[in-house]
Computed example of a mutant assay.
Amino acid sequence: MFPPIFPVDAFRLGYQMSMLALEAQSVVAMRLWGMAGLWNVTPSENSRMVSEKSTAMIASGMAAQRAMASGASATETVLAAIKPIRRRTGLNARRLSRRGAFKT
């Protein structure tokens, strides 16, 4: 039988997943607008968006493995896996939003 998930853990997990989705979609939108010439991005943005995914996913997998090896619950394991990805999406969202749209 699986251990129960407490409401506070479900809230934390839901919040982190929602923020991850929001930040990731914001970054995708700003990068697409940058490709269309509507958002101010650096020339290296296209290669950056490809290269950072592998490092974030490796860090996520390693964090999840460390959590599981230490006996963490399923919720704590997922939260540990989300943390490195959220770090990257949060930094990207802040960086890209500060650059802003091109003036037309």
Rank of each mutant, 00 (worst) to 15 (best):
M1Q: 07
F2Y: 11
F2V: 05
P3L: 10
P4L: 14
F6C: 08
F6M: 15
F6D: 15
F6Q: 13
P7H: 08
P7E: 09
P7D: 10
V8A: 12
V8L: 14
A10T: 06
F11G: 07
R12G: 03
R12F: 03
G14A: 08
G14C: 10
G14N: 07
Y15D: 14
Y15M: 15
S18D: 09
M19C: 08
L20I: 02
A21H: 14
A21W: 07
A21N: 13
L22V: 10
A24F: 08
Q25V: 05
V27M: 00
A29C: 06
A29L: 09
L32Q: 14
L32W: 05
M35L: 11
A36C: 11
A36L: 11
L38K: 13
L38S: 06
W39C: 04
W39Y: 15
N40L: 04
P43I: 03
S44F: 03
E45V: 15
N46F: 09
S47P: 03
R48G: 06
R48A: 12
M49Q: 12
M49P: 01
V50K: 02
V50T: 11
V50E: 12
V50H: 03
S51V: 10
K53H: 05
A56M: 08
I58S: 10
A59Y: 00
M62S: 07
A63P: 00
A64P: 00
A67F: 08
A67H: 01
A67D: 01
M68C: 09
A69N: 15
A69W: 02
A72F: 01
A72H: 03
A72S: 14
S73W: 02
T75P: 01
E76N: 06
V78D: 00
L79T: 01
A80V: 01
K83T: 04
K83A: 15
I85W: 00
I85L: 09
I85G: 02
R86M: 14
R86F: 01
R88L: 06
G90C: 06
N92T: 03
A93D: 11
R95W: 13
S97N: 11
S97M: 14
S97Q: 13
R98H: 05
G100F: 05
A101R: 09
